[in-house]
Design a protein around this nucleic acid. Sequence first.
DNA 1: AAATAGTATAGACTATGCTTCATACTTTAT
DNA 2: ATAAAGTATGAAGCATAGTCTATACTATTT
Lengths: 120, 120
Amino acid sequence: MKLINQLSKETGIPIPTIRFYEKSGLFTGKKKEDVKSNNYTYYDEEVIKKLSLIRDAKSAGFTLSEIKEIIDAWYGKQISKPEKLEILSRKLVQIETKIKELKEVKIQIAFLKNEVEKCN
Amino acid sequence: MKLINQLSKETGIPIPTIRFYEKSGLFTGKKKEDVKSNNYTYYDEEVIKKLSLIRDAKSAGFTLSEIKEIIDAWYGKQISKPEKLEILSRKLVQIETKIKELKEVKIQIAFLKNEVEKCN
DNA sequence: AAATAGTATAGACTATGCTTCATACTTTAT
DNA sequence: ATAAAGTATGAAGCATAGTCTATACTATTT
């Protein structure tokens, strides 16, 4: 069980950002009931995995609420199997779409570069 | 020469958003000096091209200031040819990186989907 | 001529995703 | 034991990217 400091070190995500994600419902830590002197929050390995997914999915252009959907589809106990599969399939389609859009923009920019090269 | 209404229709971008982009320095329209009765702004074909680039680059995950860089590298008169080429090359690298990240997230999600399929 | 639709401008407002601050308490290092 | 470092919480602040409102004038339609 890790403290927030350790989470931050292992994922490279700043502590306030981790707290913000937790407050946003992307994961939860646990208070240790046997420890009475403080109310520090402890996090397990699963949280590291979730934070990695958040980091990667964010840099791929997903919003936090889209990422929450993915996490809920993955760990959410109250979601049925077909629903989970449906959500994950949709995400895969979204990713395919994003890749296609990126390739189109790439072509556009390569064209601009070519224009600059021959014209000026 | 087109009015803002027409720009909006041709690009699918709402009028307030077009005004916001113009105010952000992504392009400029011109006032017709021979017309004294109103002060409507007119836009040429180049603006349509810029708006299309903005639309595509945005959905590919670029920020407005990144897009401004691209546009400046494309039309900016005060930027030297080597600088322009350098900016566009950087953008191409950024796009390649984004595509790689997307492919990684795709693998992650495909894995999650597979887990859901066999487990529940 | 009157109603309807289009344009301009400034400013307020919203949502997302943080980031910083203030306060207070706990733990660790020296 | 005292200072430094870590943790918790709530609230404020900030940047980006719009979106909406109010006001006022212009143009078009009927």
